[in-house]
């Protein structure tokens, strides 16, 4: 099944649930007052989730400064070897 249909199925189910609730009688008044605005809440929640994940991702972003030092050592070693073999390793 194409991804767009899978995604659509999830969204469709949620919308169906919401319409079902809208049509059902005898809901507590406090609930039926916010019911029409639930999709807006859902969108805002999704946006917050996205921003939160980006923020969290930035906070725990894995870095490896020591790898850069190790690579520099490897580069020096490689350059010495290649120079000895007559390969042109000048960088312009």
């Amino acid at each position: 099944m194409k991804q767009v249909f899978k995604f659509g199925a999830v969204v469709g189910t949620l919308v169906a649930l919401w319409i079902g609730l809208l049509l059902s009688p005898d809901l507590p008044q406090s609930f039926s007052l916010i019911l029409p605005f639930l999709p807006v809440y859902a969108l805002v929640a999704l946006g917050c989730y996205g921003l939160g994940m980006v923020g969290y991702g930035l906070m725990v972003f894995p870095t490896c400064p020591h790898e850069s030092i190790l690579l520099q050592k490897d580069i020096d070693e490689a350059k010495a070897f290649l120079k000895e073999k007559g390969v042109d390793v000048a960088y312009q």
């Binding site: 996205g50 994940m53 980006v54 991702g57 930035l58 972003f61 894995p62 870095t63 490896c64 400064p65 790898e67 850069s68």
Partner: peptide, 21 residues
């Protein structure tokens, strides 16, 4: 065990945003 070196904040932000999306 993995990681990235040499990216500025803008590059990291773009990468995380793209990944979440």
């Amino acid at each position: 065990g993995g990681g990235v070196h040499g990216w500025d904040l803008r590059r990291k932000l773009t990468s995380r945003g793209a990944n979440v999306l």
